[in-house]
Design a protein around this nucleic acid. Structure first.
Length: 488
RNA sequence: GGUCGGAUGGCCGAGCGGUUAGGCAGAGCUCUGCAAAAGCUCGUACAGCGGUUCAAAUCCGCUUCCGACCUCCA
């Protein structure tokens, strides 16, 4: 019926047919957030993209174990040796326990992802909960001769590693140029042998709050080792998909692969997926540039660049209208367009169940279904899938207007398709107050009264009801077959 | 500076060798007490300059802009 699922693999730079290592099981690992501040919208886009991957794989019948870590230790501010743990620094500033901060942002993070209707991952491991695994992995890399100790800190020997393994495989960079470009700065970097070397384990300074005992003294794990340790623990030495934001490719993911190979002599993931950045006025949204949006600023419209607020589902739909490997630019007009489109889609979804059926169909539902699945199979092309859905919207409205007809079996197919793609795969849901018994009851009463006054041609009262309802976000529509209403 | 990506109609955004993307906005029509909604019709775009080809938004080259990475970043 439809094509096979193809996924763009950063490693090979092409779309490949997806073949799980141990079907029907699929292992998916995504680099999660570092919890030292609120997650901004750019972060959300990445997790949303992988939410689609997770949902669609499940929809196709795979049993997916989706692991997304939480980084609550490590992550140095710079790779200079006076680098300070980001979380510890923030803790000192706010006079809070590091774990208190982590907790604060973790709660916020989960709340936001829930607002966006992201499915929780199967496992959400924390770095602090896997110190032992990280130490064990570091030991093994040392045994394999690819790491060395300098004063309680363990460094990964990139140049030595690169003699037997393709270190720059993922980034496509030229190793010699990378070494050339940085060699000048080696002075003052006395601890490590090569400028590209990175820490697997860092010695803790006396003032350092987060610290754990290790064979090399008290310290904390390096910036990349957590993902290697945790992905191996929960998904095995080799698994199907590893993902994250594009900006992780040259350093984090490159080093992750290196560590993993140095330890297990094989590459961790078969497919590497990377999402593109969210931009504002053409520039990457990032904390350091100060152009990042917090989700709640977007929902309430409190950000200075926003004219008003936009609902989580509007934003979700907006992001899904672009492909995950393209940049997506954020603006008021784009958001407003998405809001309208999203509402139109949801209205059709509500309409489809009540469509009148006929003996014949004047629309081709099977074809529409194939188009949508082909789009999703083509590297999760939600943009094209949504275009297909809008073709369905047109069909639904047209049947509803009595201009097209549909058979019972076609209607069932269309309804199933709409429900599954919109709700299960794209994760869009109705978010208005509609649907609750109380609101429905109130609306039925109000519309009943309005019907009475209209029968008496009291249009002044009739219009007043309609206008006042509109002010609270409920739109009344007088159709041929009675009155309907929508809420936003 | 090095490396790698982009430039698509008023806006957002797919497509990446030949066929309509889609959404929003705009215009007209139908329906309607009015409105809204919905349907139909219309806008015929691919940064510029060369080249390859029967055929290019899509491939190649050059130019101009823009961005990302090279330092933590989703």
């Amino acid at each position: 019926m439809t094509s096979e699922l193809k996924i763009y693999n950063t490693l090979t730079r092409e779309k490949e047919i997806f073949k799980p290592l141990n079907a029907p099981h699929v292992g998916l690992y995504v680099c999660g957030p570092t919890l030292y501040s609120h997650a901004h919208l750019g972060n959300c886009r990445t997790f949303l993209s992988f939410d689609i991957v997770f949902r669609y794989l499940k929809h196709l019948g795979y049993q997916v174990r989706y692991v997304r870590n939480i980084t609550d230790v490590g992550h140095l501010e710079s790779d200079a040796d006076e680098g300070e743990d980001k979380i510890a620094k923030r803790a000192r500033l706010e006079k809070l326990e590091p774990m208190e901060i982590v907790q604060l942002y973790a709660v916020d993070f989960h709340k936001v992802l829930d607002d966006f209707n992201l499915l929780p991952p199967s496992i959400e491991p924390t770095a602090s909960g896997h110190i032992i695994e990280q130490i064990e992995m570091t030991k093994k890399i040392m045994e394999n001769g690819l790491a060395y100790e300098v004063d309680g800190t363990i460094w990964f020997d990139v140049e030595k590693f690169a003699k037997t393994y393709p270190y720059t495989e993922l980034s496509g960079r030229n190793l010699d140029e990378m070494l050339d470009g940085t060699r000048d700065n080696l002075e003052g970097q006395s601890e490590k042998r090569g400028r590209l070397d990175f820490a697997l384990w860092k010695k803790a300074k006396p003032e350092h709050i987060m610290r754990w005992p290790s064979p090399w003294g008290e310290g904390f794990p390096g910036w990349h080792i957590e993902c290697s340790a945790m992905s191996t623990k929960y998904l095995g030495e080799e698994f199907d998909i590893h993902g994250g934001g594009m900006d992780l490719i040259p350093t984090h993911h490159t080093n992750e692969i290196a560590q993993h190979q140095a330890c297990h002599h094989k590459s961790p993931a078969r497919v590497w997926m990377h999402t593109n950045m969210l931009t504002v006025n053409g520039q990457k949204m990032s904390k350091s540039l100060g152009n990042s949006f917090l989700p709640h600023e977007l929902f309430t419209g409190s950000h200075k660049l926003l004219e008003r607020g936009y609902s989580p589902m509007t934003v979700r739909f907006f992001m899904l209208q672009a492909h995950y490997r393209s940049t997506l630019d954020f603006s008021n007009t784009a958001l407003q367009a998405a809001e309208k489109g999203y509402q139109r889609l949801m209205n059709a979804l509500k309409l489809v169940g009540g469509l009148k059926t006929s003996d014949t169909s004047t629309c081709r539902i099977a074809e529409l279904k194939a188009d949508i699945y082909n789009a999703l199979n083509d590297d999760f092309n939600t943009s094209v899938a949504i275009a297909g859905l809008f073709e369905g919207v047109r069909i639904i409205n047209s049947i509803n207007d009595g201009k097209d007809t549909i058979t019972t079996s076609d209607k069932d197919l269309l309804q199933k398709l709409f429900k599954e793609i919109t709700e299960d795969v794209l994760g869009l849901k109705e978010e208005s107050g509609a649907g609750s018994d109380k609101v429905d009851g109130l609306m039925n009463l109000i519309l009943e009264l309005r019907k009475d006054v209209r029968a008496k041609k009291d249009f002044a009262t009739s219009d007043k009801i309609r206008d006042e309802l509109l002010k609270v976000g409920i739109q009344v529509k007088d159709g041929k077959d009675g009155v309907t209403w929508t809420s936003n």
